[in-house]
Design a binder for these strands. Structure first.
Lengths: 195, 195, 195, 195
DNA sequence: GATGAATGAGCATTCATTCAT
DNA sequence: CATGAATGAATGCTCATTCAT
């Protein structure tokens, strides 16, 4: 009857839309189910509970991001180039899915601490990925030898996140991907810290 | 037992403690009232509703921050120096109040979009303050002439925010203020972007 | 506005009626609240949860029974007389409150095992009370010297319970208290077992 | 693995085990199906609905009881002897099947009134059987000429039931069949009521 | 006959806010 | 000013039953 894609994905996609359009607390399970075109109970055949939908949603999108990222990073040599790919991939992905951007930047943050901790677990993979790039760059002489990679990582993530959030709170009315270049340049100089 | 300070402040302080110790969603009005040593109904003599407590809390602390900031910025000449004061003041303030740090970095973000928009309104003052510094610095030749001050501002706020949040999520177990120097150096080089 | 009796009792009385008229599983909290003339939430100012209403209900009625029983037993000398008072008090109490009879004999038994265990705790007091009478009677020579008081107690309770349940399942259409005499006589002979 | 016995009996046996081990409300149809080694839907090829399983279960066991009872009663002359066979058969049957004892004494009672009425229908046969014995005994002079056979029947059933239930609630940790003798003696004297 | 994925009705409980005292 | 008892709207999840295969 419905689309041929498996219900699991059908429900995740519905959750993104329902949350983006109604807000986190107003996206009741029944709304997600209706959006997905399934019965309320069907949700629970694929997810343990409502929280599990959100965790799965996040992991799913995160997996997609990592996939895209590794696809595009292939062949890039320098840390600088790799950082550009990171920013571009991030901005592109959220720019291409308005609903997802709203969900990750605004709505999912309203979830309780427990859920946010689980989400952070999912982020760990990307964090270490970035830190690896930073260490490479430092050892290759691209970055300052006394660069604190942990702090640098926080700068990179904080900057990207703030940039996207500001864009979303301004109703996504300007072009986000075109900011990747300037942002990247700033971050690069930040890492190139020298006395 | 009841301190002489006006109930208004008594309630705000109680809210910070109640939220930090119980979490945003578990800090019911009745808990805040008990912590403040007043009856539930009394809250509504000083605040329009629960959301109003949080907004007031934020504005109150923000005002305190601006006050501190302007106190310390007096006599500073360069934009670089002013930025250092900004980071230091921010880190010091949150480092000195464990409860407040938890509330601003973790708990208050669970509030709904509407509240977060109002909180952002309160931030505008500081934002423009920072942007003014950036413009000064650009015109004084400290920063790159083609620096996008809006993006730079997002980098500065994003970096500071991510740094503090990471510190809080690590249970505040290392010294935050000592990170102000390295962070400032990175941000400065980021702004000093040149071709 | 409402009756002057404390809300606690008001709710218990409402629960008896609501359960008797709607059945255990159809007596939703909202129905009990409506019957009691209070808001749903008010229930939870006086009871921990729905189960707590039922436990309290049972203890309340049990307390009333014990009170009545001790009132009427005063001055009775023989165990036989005391047993008669027991049966009469039990039959009278349930005969006087149609709703209560339905609740104790039919509806409350549908509660889960946990609740039934708690109810049994409440019964312990009465059980030992009866066993004391049986021991007295045995020592006074009224009953067989080799009477197993535990079995006798089970006979007494089982017989009374079955009698009342049968009466309720027959829509209480005959007179229950008038059965106390014959039942008592049978039980007495049962206890008077001799070789 | 799948025994050759018809699925009908397979499912009833599974229901007894599932209910005894999980409790009435936790013995979902899916659990019974899994225990029986069939699909959920298969249940509905043999039973109208869940309630029908329970009624059938009860009737099945009741039929087995009557069969056993008539087997053993053959050749017994006096009402007293026949009553002994009744108590012994009842106690033996439940003593031999721990699961069945739990189900009949504790779990099945949580069913709703309607189901319990239907179960009572099934009991009618045994009830009248007992009443016949009582009338025989009265006419044969074994029992008091003014014995109320309806009340006596309630005493007999109530006592047996209470005895078994107490035994189950004490985790079946003492020997039930050995109580048949003493119980029978008490009941007999109860019926032998004389002025 | 057998399957098992899908259905969707139903309900205890919390808590921000009010208002009579 | 202050109180705190009372309010009542709002929602995630279970499970008996169906029916297309």
């Amino acid at each position: 009857m419905k689309k041929n894609k498996p219900k699991y994905r059908q429900i995740i996609d519905a959750a993104v839309i329902a949350i983006a359009e109604n807000g986190y607390h107003q996206a009741q399970v029944s709304k997600i189910a209706k959006q997905a075109g399934v019965a309320d109970g069907t949700i629970y055949l694929y997810f343990k509970n409502k929280e599990d939908i959100l965790i799965s949603l996040f992991q799913d999108k995160m997996g997609y991001f990592v996939e895209k990222f590794e696809e595009k990073i292939a062949g890039k040599e320098t840390a600088a180039e790799k950082l550009l790919v990171l920013v571009e991939t991030h901005f592109n992905m959220l720019s291409e899915d308005r609903h997802l951007a709203i969900v990750t930047q605004l709505e999912l943050r309203q979830s309780n601490k427990e859920l946010r901790h689980k989400i952070n677990e999912g982020l760990k993979g990307v964090l270490s990925l970035v830190e690896k790039i930073l260490i490479e760059g430092r050892e290759a002489g691209e970055f300052s030898p006394d660069l604190d990679t942990r702090l640098a990582r926080q700068m990179i993530f904080g900057t990207m996140d703030e940039t996207v959030t500001t864009w979303v709170m301004n109703d996504q009315k300007y072009d986000l991907p075109s900011l990747a270049g300037p942002i990247h340049k700033m971050l690069l100089h930040g890492c190139a810290t020298r006395k």
